[in-house]
């Protein structure tokens, strides 16, 4: 079970930050070739990131590279980066399902037969992308998740970006629903004020409650609060444990129905309980035999 709660963006043309990116506990490190790199430095960043991928030990973190968009430098990025075998490639400015298919086709051509298949994480950051989000979410087996790009999205919609995030409430829910329907992961937008930990935790709790499976981070300081917020709480674990116990008891007694606290346990509730316990076990919040 791969856990991807936090995805930390790191500028791709900064050797110091590339070297330390794996030290902060992020589940995914995103080596950025897009916004963090000036157009006349794209060549230097590609060369550096390609070598960092095969040199730096990122520990447990999955290695992701944010490409430039399909209509800019993406093809050049792919030629340099694919041979270095990242786990994921992040594609920005995805407006339609054919964008994912286009990237996947290029990966089919560039990957070596023995290479582990690279997965795609796409950013939805335009009104058109959001309008077609479900078609995008189910477009290709390489697509493992979508990330909400709130800054570009609000600029294009013409709304004011706020800390409360009311302006992206519908966008967030649409994206989460599309991902859940397609069976892929959903990552919430980054919280851009790196000095406001309280605000970050509030924003991350909201994301978790909406159904997001993870969240982007723009500063190493944001990783720990994001991870801790996405971890199952003691209350969630206790409730999941009671549900599973009730199900076992019902099975033993030959009853088809279990209940906890007077509420019936149906299949989605049971599945959620199993997921909570699996995640807690994976994160070593409970012991291996604890069920």
């Amino acid at each position: 079970m791969i856990v991807r709660r936090s995805a930390l963006f790191v500028p791709g043309n900064n050797p110091g930050m590339l070297q330390t990116a794996g030290l902060f506990g992020a589940d995914v490190v995103i080596l950025d070739l897009e916004d963090a790199v000036a157009p006349n430095e794209k060549d230097a960043a590609r060369e550096l990131v390609a070598r960092a991928l095969v040199t730096i030990d990122y520990g447990q973190a999955q290695k992701c590279v944010r490409l430039n968009s399909l209509d800019t430098f993406c093809a050049d990025d792919l030629k340099e980066i694919v041979p270095s075998q990242p786990d994921l490639l992040m594609l920005p400015k995805v407006h339609r399902a054919s964008d994912i298919k286009d990237l996947a086709g290029q990966l089919d051509d560039l990957e070596r037969p023995s290479q582990k298949r690279i997965e795609i994480l796409a950013i939805i950051e335009s009104p058109q992308g959001l309008a077609e989000v479900y078609e995008i979410a189910r477009s290709h087996y390489r697509l493992m998740g979508l990330l909400m790009g709130a800054e570009d999205y609000t600029a294009m919609v013409g709304s004011l970006r706020t800390k409360g995030g009311e302006e992206i409430a519908v966008a967030r829910s649409l994206l989460v629903n599309a991902c859940a329907a397609a069976g892929i992961e959903s990552f919430d937008a980054v919280f851009t004020d790196a000095n406001d930990e309280e605000g970050l935790i509030k924003d991350t709790k909201l994301a978790k409650n909406l159904g997001f499976t993870g969240k982007g981070a723009i500063n190493p300081r944001q990783v720990k609060p994001i991870n801790e917020t996405f971890n199952p709480s003691a209350t969630e674990i206790d409730y999941a444990r009671r549900i599973l116990k009730a199900l076992r008891q019902a099975e033993k007694e030959g009853s088809g129905v279990a209940s906890v606290g007077g509420k019936m346990v149906d299949a989605p509730v049971a599945k959620r309980a199993v997921n909570v316990m699996n995640l807690a076990r994976r994160l070593k919040l409970i012991g291996q035999g604890d069920d």
Binding site: A44, L48, R51
Partner: peptide, 17 residues
């Protein structure tokens, strides 16, 4: 204080340019 990979990357970029 660049590591070996960064030294190679910067040199390769300079040569390419």
């Amino acid at each position: 204080g660049a590591l070996d990979y960064a030294i190679r990357a910067r040199l390769v970029t300079a040569l390419s340019r």
